[in-house]
Design a protein around this nucleic acid. Structure first.
Lengths: 221, 221
DNA sequence: GTCTATATGTAGATAGAC
DNA sequence: GTCTATCTACATATAGAC
């Protein structure tokens, strides 16, 4: 041995081909997990979609659960950063009201989902799964709660007299509406009896801001 | 043969023991499906919880999918009836506003979930699963949409100038909040940093009514 | 109706050649 | 890193005795 290495240190950088495989596996996993759920997804389907042999999925992603966590983590950091940047920028331009705060939370996600990368829409379903299932509570705690707490701080500062529980209630309802917006277009269209029905960002923000305001006003009396 | 029978007619009434087994199987299926999801649930776990042999589950419930549908259907009819009754009764007492309409939709469910039968809480998770997953769209269409349409009719009558799509949007967000209320108490508590945090029915209704009103007002301008 | 034993398929994971 | 072949486990569903 010419060189000492610690256990976890990589001996050399991954090759270009390796990185491409890895990226394709993560993209495929995201799509399949979003479509079929964690239990319903099959590692074989992920391998087929990524066009890599079955063995490579485990080689790169580890166990199915580790792969799922990796997929969720991948975009969570970028999302949190975009949200906090939007908040910081809005604060620099003057005092914030409820609509502005929720807008900073919603818009970065919606911009990504509506933008060029269609994988962000699949990701919305993953977030909905994680948020709804107590089995993934640790993922929520690690990846999503810190940002949520930061936004709730802003709302609490606006309404110093209401308890944090009331703000949390409104915030959870708002996130539920956001996820419904992203994942339930088919349902809105079915109920509206027309195929072109689609919610608007402004409509979503209006709904949530007014809802939160009403819930807070109720608590203040 | 002393008597002609059609193919689907039962030759004799099920025994008491059979009915008890069947009921225990449906209850157990409801609990396990709610806890683990459709794919994650194992027929073996359902049999174990119901304390019946594995074979009986298929005997009574048919395939796993048929069992799931049966479990969802079981309470859907009662729920729809309670909701429509509440609406009819409220209409008898004078003109309805948005808060009253949503109240008639929410309260029957919440009363059941908060009442004596703890299975209704598990059922809420099933409804959330069905509502969120396009794979179960036919179940939504058959069991839930007719009632939803009826309530949307009332809202549309209140605001004749707004499109049905806008009402559908607000309604879907409201149902998302209702399901969050029923299934995400753990999440609200986590964000509020206190264990006793729990939403109130009045808070939920206030949130949704104000949200819908704001969304509709936005569309009217 | 009830229960045991089993048929059949398929899942996740890995060993080992290249 | 890549890929094939396979191991092991466990899933659903059913056949058939009682």
């Amino acid at each position: 041995m010419t060189k000492k290495t610690t256990a976890k240190q990589r001996l050399r950088a991954p090759s270009k081909r390796s990185l491409a495989s890895r990226s394709r596996i993560l993209d495929a996993a995201e799509t399949v997990f979003a479509r079929d759920g964690f239990e319903g997804a099959k590692v074989r389907d992920i391998a087929a979609l990524a066009e890599v042999p079955l063995g490579l999925v485990n080689h790169h992603g580890g166990s199915k659960e580790a792969l799922f966590r990796e997929v969720v983590e991948r975009r969570a950091e970028e999302l949190a950063r975009l949200r906090l940047e939007a908040l910081a920028q809005a604060k620099g331009q003057g005092a914030l009201d409820l609509t502005a705060i929720l807008g900073c939370f919603f818009r970065p996600y919606l911009a990504k989902a509506a933008g060029s990368d269609p994988q962000w829409l699949a990701y919305a379903r993953l977030v909905a799964m994680v948020s709804a299932d107590p089995a993934w509570a640790d993922v929520s705690t690690d990846l999503f709660d810190p940002t949520a707490q930061r936004f709730m701080d802003e709302i609490c500062a606006l309404y110093p007299k209401v308890s944090r529980a009331v703000v949390a209630e409104g915030f959870v309802y708002s996130v539920a509406a956001l996820l419904a917006f992203l994942t339930s277009e088919w349902r809105i269209a079915a109920l509206a009896s027309q195929s072109d029905a689609q919610g608007s960002v402004e409509g979503l923000v209006a709904f949530c801001a007014a809802g939160c305001a009403a819930r807070i006003a109720q608590a203040e009396t």
